[in-house]
């Protein structure tokens, strides 16, 4: 790749927070570094992944609204976690997480557990865990 061929395809994937460092050769064939704001194939596969995650999230929301799962299920999918990972973050056993995904058990959850789940989802203590819209 030549210095002037380094792609600058901005799809706001880096959100202006940083730039990618790319190695390319200058006109004398010597290696140098160029900063890049993005590259299309990379943007495409990132978008593909996020579309997939949003699809799963929307599906989870539907199931929660139907009463099939507790709101935890939605947050779990939104944060791309599985029961095991959620349990690890919250410090709750996988079996308990499995129980709390059931709406009936979830309704009886005490504050201690709720706070643990909020910690796992990086929510502030005053935020509502039941809220699944938006």
């Amino acid at each position: 790749m030549k210095e002037n061929q380094v792609p600058q395809d901005d799809a706001n994937m880096l959100e202006g927070k940083t730039r990618d460092l790319q190695y390319a050769v200058d006109e004398h064939g010597k290696y140098t570094v160029v900063k890049s704001v993005g590259w299309e194939p990379k943007n495409i596969v990132l978008q593909q992944t996020w579309e997939d995650i949003h699809k799963r999230m929307n599906h989870a929301r539907k199931l929660v609204k139907k009463g099939r799962y507790s709101p935890l299920y939605y947050h779990m999918k939104k944060h791309m976690m599985n029961k095991r990972m959620l349990g690890k973050y919250a410090g709750i056993s996988v079996f308990r997480v499995w129980l709390h995904l059931k709406p009936k058990k979830y309704a009886k959850l005490n504050e201690k557990y709720i706070q643990k789940y909020k910690y796992a989802f990086n929510m502030k203590p005053e935020e509502d865990l039941n809220y699944v819209d938006a």
Partner: peptide, 8 residues
């Protein structure tokens, strides 16, 4: 970290 890159 830029949000689109935040995976596990």
């Amino acid at each position: 970290f830029p949000a689109p890159y935040r995976f596990h």
